[in-house]
């Protein structure tokens, strides 16, 4: 599954410091979140769309496959707002459904926002290596090593967790377990999956922590890093380009 995430070509975005990339993209997301103007939301979605489709370095086939959930979330967030959104200038009404000018505006705003989120998120995930991201967070942004290593260790265990979940599912199927209806059934389902899963993961996590401490890992101690990361010229270029892009997106939306 992880082989799927190998790009066709490594674009310049791959060489940017992953922690810096995260901070910049996160700032973008916050701007997207608080923005309430429709033109700016649309121009942002276009900008991030360009980042995603042109500079992520993946083949068009994979990119279009990744676009499917984005389109679905665009439609589902937009549709609820379109039909149930509040507004005065009513265009069409049928029972509880009501479409007004305001609700169309709001639906478009929400849709563009969710597209922006999707594009930025995917561009980030497609162009980083998770391990290097945590190393860069430790070295460039002083994230305490205990968090970074815990995250790396826990992420490494994901395949084991999903495998266990699968085994549990099969075991329940083989035994032909029937759940009750309603809320009680929901609880039974949740319990029968989570309890063995958590018991096993807690044991595993505890063993890893004990092993790390046995090998003299100390929280808060000064340390060297196996993968050194630093800032390069490309990071300055990245920062500059991103700021220019955002500014032009803003100006485009103001002076149409």
């Amino acid at each position: 599954m992880f082989n799927w995430f190998t790009p066709k070509r490594k674009t310049w975005l791959f060489r940017v410091n992953p922690a810096l990339k995260f901070i910049v993209f996160f700032a973008f997301l916050i701007i997207t979140l608080v923005n309430q103007s429709l033109p700016f939301a649309i121009s942002q979605a276009v900008l991030y769309g360009i980042l995603f489709y042109v500079f992520s370095g993946y083949s068009l086939k994979k990119l279009s496959l990744l676009s499917i959930p984005l389109v679905i979330s665009f439609l589902s967030t937009g549709l609820t707002m379109l039909l149930f959104g509040k507004g005065e200038a009513v265009l069409w009404q049928w029972g509880l459904f009501k479409i007004s000018e305001e609700s169309i505006q709001h639906a478009l705003l929400l849709g563009s926002k969710s597209l922006s989120f999707g594009f930025v998120g995917f561009t980030f995930i497609l162009t980083i290596q998770p391990v290097l991201f945590f190393y860069a967070m430790m070295q460039q942004f002083r994230l305490p090593s205990k968090y970074a290593y815990s995250f790396i260790a826990a992420f490494r265990l994901i395949p084991a967790v999903t495998e266990e979940l699968q085994i549990r599912r099969n075991a329940l199927k083989v035994r032909n377990i029937q759940f009750s209806k309603g809320v009680k059934g929901l609880y039974e389902r949740l319990q029968s999956y989570t309890v063995p899963l958590f018991a096993q993961s807690i044991r595993r996590a505890q063993r890893i922590a004990v092993a790390m401490e046995a090998k003299q890992y100390q929280m808060g101690a000064a340390r060297t890093y196996y993968y050194p990361t630093q800032y390069n010229t490309i990071d300055r270029v990245f920062l500059l380009v991103m700021i220019c892009c955002l500014c032009s997106a803003f100006l485009l939306s103001v002076y149409r």
Partner: peptide, 8 residues
């Protein structure tokens, strides 16, 4: 550290 790793 054990608690932290288990939490995460």
């Amino acid at each position: 550290f054990t608690d932290l790793l288990i939490t995460i």
